[in-house]
Amino acid sequence: MNLSRRHFLVLVPAAAVAWKAVLAGTPEEAPNYNKAEHWWGMLIDIPKCIGCGNCVRACEAENDVPEGHFRTWVERYHVTDGNMTNPEVISPDGGKEGFPAVQEDAGKYFFVPKMCNHCADSPCTQVCPVGATFVTPDGVVLVDQKYCLGCAYCVQACPYGCRYIHPEKKVADKCTLCYHRITKGLTTACCENCPTGARQLVDLKNPKDPIHEFLKTHSVQVLKPQMATGAKVYYNELDGSVR
């Protein structure tokens, strides 16, 4: 390794600060966030979701999401007997203010929070003609809004409907997996504000992350697996009627 004395003297204090965070048991808080050491995703535990809409409001507050657009939203499914292929799905204002109460009724109800799946082989990044959207080395799909032309190819390409054109900026906008938070050692705004722990940020490259045990012991599914997008939002106990 070719290391000049000047470079070495710069590295030593940086390493000392990082080591302090490692000793404190919080390596993710070390200032030298290393993109190569993370591979972010999310776990959504359907049986825990109560449809309160806290995640939608938190996302809006954290990311200045324009009115009428959503980076995350909650859908309520109502599957009546024997009608798996045609469930009744509602999402009033993205589920931001919760859902109307229902009395006991035939069939089953459940909530499905949705968001960008941060696909590893994402169709949205493949269609961008200018390289304005991409998967980062740590597995987050982002939009470079200074480079985006607003052609909306990616909005059409996303199989999950997770992108929109920002009404004022006229460029593509989407969930960033709170990239400004996760690189600072915080969790996303939606996970931070989920009162039941139905949403959890997961780091698939961290061997100590509970996700590895969870994936082994639960029935976990991604949305539209047949499209082979490499989606990294994992749903626990996802019903077969969810599209």
Binding site: E62, G131, Y147, Y179, H180, T187, E192
Partner: peptide
Amino acid sequence: PKSFGQYGHYRGAAISEMAARPVKFAGH
């Protein structure tokens, strides 16, 4: 841009620009 192609077919500096945004929820 200078950083285009640093990590792939995109502007590498966009990642750090995104990461530099201020947070609004402090965290528990």
